[in-house]
Design a protein around this nucleic acid. Sequence first.
RNA 1: GCCCGAAUGGCGGAAUUGGUAGACGCGCUGGACUCAAAAUCCAGUGUCCCUUAAAGACGUGCCGGUUCGACCCCGGCUUUGGGCACCA
Length: 911
Amino acid sequence: MDYDFKTIESKWQARWTADGTFRSEIDKDKPKFYVLDMFPYPSGAGLHVGHPLGYIASDIFSRYKRLCGFNVLHPMGYDAFGLPAEQYAIQTGQHPEVTTTHNIARYRSQLDRIGFSYDWNREVRTCDPAYYKWTQWAFLKMFDSWYDPALDKARPISELVAKFETTGYEGVTPEVWAAASDKERSDILMRYRIAYQGETSVNWCEGLGTVLANDEVKDGLSVRGGFPVEQKKMTQWQLRVSAYAGRLLDSLDRLDWTDSLKEMQRNWIGKSEGTEMVFNTVCDGRQKPVTIFTTRADTVFGVTFMVLAPESELVDELTSESQKEAVAAYIKEVKKKTERERIAETHTVTGVFAGSYGINPLTGEQIPIWISEYVLAGYGTGAIMAVPAHDSRDYAFARKFDLPIIPLIEGCDVSEQSFDAKEGVMCNSGFLNGMQVKQAIEAAKDYVEAHGLGRRKTNFRLRDAIFSRQRYWGEPFPIYYKDGIPCPIPESELPLTLPEIDSYKPSPDGQPPLSRAKDWTWHGYPIEKSTMPGFAGSSAYYLRYMDPHNDKALVSPEANAYWRSVDLYIGGTEHATGHLIYSRFWNKFLYDLGYVCEDEPFKKLINQGMIQGRSNFVYRIVGTNTFVSLGRKDQYETTEIHVDINIVRNDRLDLEAFKAWRPEFADAQFVLEDGEYICGWAVEKMSKSMFNVVNPDVICDTYGADTLRLYEMFLGPLEQSKPWDTKGIDGVNRFLKKFWRLFYDRDQWLVTEEKASPAELKVLHRLIGKERSDIESFSFNTTISAFMIAVNDLTALKCSKREILEPMVVLLSPFAPHIAEELWHALGNACSVSDARFPAYVEAYTVEDSCTYAVSFNGKTRFTVDLPKSMDRAEVEARVRALEQTAKYVADQQIVKVIVVPGKIVNIVVK
RNA sequence: GCCCGAAUGGCGGAAUUGGUAGACGCGCUGGACUCAAAAUCCAGUGUCCCUUAAAGACGUGCCGGUUCGACCCCGGCUUUGGGCACCA
């Protein structure tokens, strides 16, 4: 009987579904393990072979953990709200829900063919009202909470109101509070709510008709669609993520994530410790204190001017009559620029003198105040003290506008560029003279605080998340407006569902599409017209999987207490500064209020690399319909043309298929080499236009899902980006066939009950050792290599003994579950192979041998080594010869330790 | 500009982290089976010297260092991938 993957795979996929093999329920007798994939956005293009890379890895790990006796939670769902469906709806008028449902069905059928062990019973879709009820619920909780800095956590806003009423808080006395109108009270509370409405400078994308979050913009263009983005002041819903900056940074240390990803988050959060200092200013005789932020308090003696951000509220007050016109003109100029232009023109220096002066608090000197776009309104106080000698940006500005530059470090040369390094000995700096820079920074901070000139301050770059989107296909805000005051719709009335509208375009007067829903009100009050952004639905989905059908809570305390948090999360790095920050924030917020029991959502995170496409080219001789093979193309003048990779195999073009591919190639002529047409190739992004998209369905048809799974893992390290290249796929397919032939020869069942020989056992022992150590470190490619070696060895030994093969089947089952399941049942087992128990095999076979090897030199035995049974004598002897070499050198020294791992003597430690 | 990471045969990649470099797979070469092909199996395959083999020399981007011993550690470059980019 041959290995017939088609029959086998569909048979077992159907059985797993029918039997509910991968359903998971709370089982307090077993340890739990939660393995999660970043759920996909179901796009119209369907899955390509890059998508399942991470899914396969997580599936292998899930199945492995299950074999090890864990109760595994391994769910899947869809991040189904989003722009492409809405854009498609605008073009075609089709409701986004229709396209989304259709795409999900396509995704599901593609996923099903790969044989994942998902518990589909727990599927979630972010666009499902039963799901987004809980997104809206969390928003209401954030609306109804504030961040209490004293407790360093979120608390119900009622506690803040109580403070206002009794003791007063931050300038709001009980009298002020009592006298305040409803509107005034609402405005005061908005300054504290975790989810709040406020005016802010936003990334406005005209092309999409909506605002975007910082992580949705790259190089001044929208990530989706690539439209230009400009800065605009708007009132928007926001999440006070910045309140959590310190905690988001600190708990990063406790996470098992890659250092590079943690570093990305650290940079994004951008902690900087410095000083806030007050400078007095004079403008047309009026005095006004201005606070600036600096990390270099030690350089105050070198301040020769001050700079305000163009958007700063201080600009008006600090502009003198005489400079009014010039300043207005400059600001108009700055506003006109899009974000993209500003980025492109980075390092071209612009600015205008405000006509006012600041007073250096240490020297009493009068210094000019300028306005320039190199100072950002959103960071620090929007105003800086400029020290051109020791800051490159200030230096460039001083040079351009001819402002003085005072060096403060002995021997530094500032004639060509500023001296930014924090090293050297201070000079020209009063009481700081003679100190090292690091010492001076601290001394200056102390001085400033002691003399009441300012205080130490930590700033973060992390901004609050803008939470409004002027779009249709997202979660509606459960907010209505009463006399212009935003009020929450009661929790008991959630979900607030999306209304039907006649068109998905913004209204003619530029209002969000939801404004088209005329009679959409809450008891006659208007409802908020913007919707939530993409990251809203994905911020807590991992919690929902724990208890997906609960309509009383996002997750019940019991389910949450059992499943706790995600033990292993697999997904791409592209979410480093978006989803992975928002989710952590969201989780910490729920943790503060006691809704979840863990303060971090994802314990361990693995970033799978991207799979790039491998495009093929043919070369047409200019002006003809003749195509020349790669090796001969230099003899002609040719044009390079992308060719569909589906008609190319191992870079050999299928000539007939090529002629049939496009009508214009029907009568194509070829210049061949060795009778074949060799195509050129290049690694590019996988995309339709380059004809290099590989659909996993095609691989499943020709080789089977097990081969696809093995091959994707065999391609190289999981975390590395790599091009998809089917060249080696025959190798893993051959391996599966060989494995099959250990069990069957034509129609003959070969497996016997004979006792295994030591040589055969050794093959199995090695494989077990390898799989155990590799799988925990996600080194799946080397595990598969070990499998190939084992199968080759067993083939050579003609070994078809149950004692060896049955454990092999179990070991293979996480990687190639279909063939394993088939053979497992053929061996007479009734349960699913996923219910086999790995530890039983491990314990039985990793018993160590008591073989001792003595290494001697100068006629004396110096040390002995115990070797594991899986090691070959020949190997040992080769190693010992090397050791004896070493021993000559270490003869006079004391040997402390000999380190041995299975397979090899590793090292000798000498004193 | 700043911060991470990578560089190993014709190709994808191994090397248990300082101990036989190139596992495993692909490709290629030769052979077996076959009327033939496919499939399958066996052998070979880093470079140089050589008819061949043995033996040797050289070999992990480049230059230098530490060590009995370096793909691995240290110093200095080159190329390349990714992230951030006026964050005071």
